[in-house]
Computed example of a mutant assay.
Amino acid sequence: MDTVTLDRLAIRDLVENWAVWRDAGDWDRFQTCWHDDGFMCATWFQGPASEFIRVSREGSSKGVSILHFLGGTSIDLAGTRAIAQTKMTISQRAQVHDVQCDVVCTGRFYDFIEKRQGKWGVVLRQPIYEKDRIDPVDPSATLQLDRDVLMALPEGYRHLAYIQERIGYKVKRDMPGLKGAEVERLYARGRNWLAGGSPHEPAA
């Protein structure tokens, strides 16, 4: 099997392991998905991967329920660097106005990935939030959201943000969505990364 095919398989394996090990609470193996300088961006957290693992572990022990489901992956490969986009859903369960609810957000993981010393690892993960919804776990329950609060939140993840802020998280308000300036800047950063630049810098 040629090197490019092997690299693509390894990257896909990395993306799938990230979701399985994180949701299973297999924290030691989850850590191996990241390079040492890995960085995670999410609605509720932006920071080093090591800190993301710590706060995710703490949240899980306190009953925070955030799960992931993956779809197809598209990989742009440039030598030892790659951008992987993976269709995904984020599912979170929590009490909202005394009603137990599930919120499901559909989007993509946009991963800056690099091969170092023969090992592929995540350097930066930036989700793209495309659309979401919220439903009571009990279909007979009545849920009334504060419409003014809801509509002030970003369209692609407003229900996810609503539920996360209700349980005490501070949600970032300018995450990339299906369209708009934020996602276009992310794509530019991806092109810059493949050309040898930093994942944290906008393309010139």
Rank of each mutant, 00 (worst) to 15 (best):
I134H: 04
P48Q: 05
D148N: 13
I83L: 07
T43L: 10
Y157F: 13
Q95N: 11
K172Q: 12
V103Y: 00
T80V: 07
F52E: 01
V149I: 12
R57A: 14
I113L: 08
S91Y: 01
R93I: 13
K87W: 12
D135A: 15
L70Y: 03
T106C: 15
A49V: 04
S65V: 10
E165A: 01
W44E: 12
E165N: 04
G63D: 10
E114N: 05
W44D: 09
C101N: 03
G59T: 02
T89M: 11
H159E: 05
Y162C: 04
L145T: 00
K179F: 11
V104Y: 03
D146C: 01
P48A: 09
S60M: 15
F45Q: 04
P176D: 02
Q46T: 14
P136C: 07
Q117D: 15
S74R: 15
G118H: 09
A82R: 02
R93F: 12
L150H: 05
K62N: 11
Q164D: 07
G47Y: 12
K115A: 06
T73W: 00
T89N: 10
E114H: 09
G59H: 06
V137H: 01
P154C: 03
K179R: 11
P139L: 00
F112D: 00
I53L: 14
G63N: 06
R166H: 14
D148Y: 14
E182Q: 14
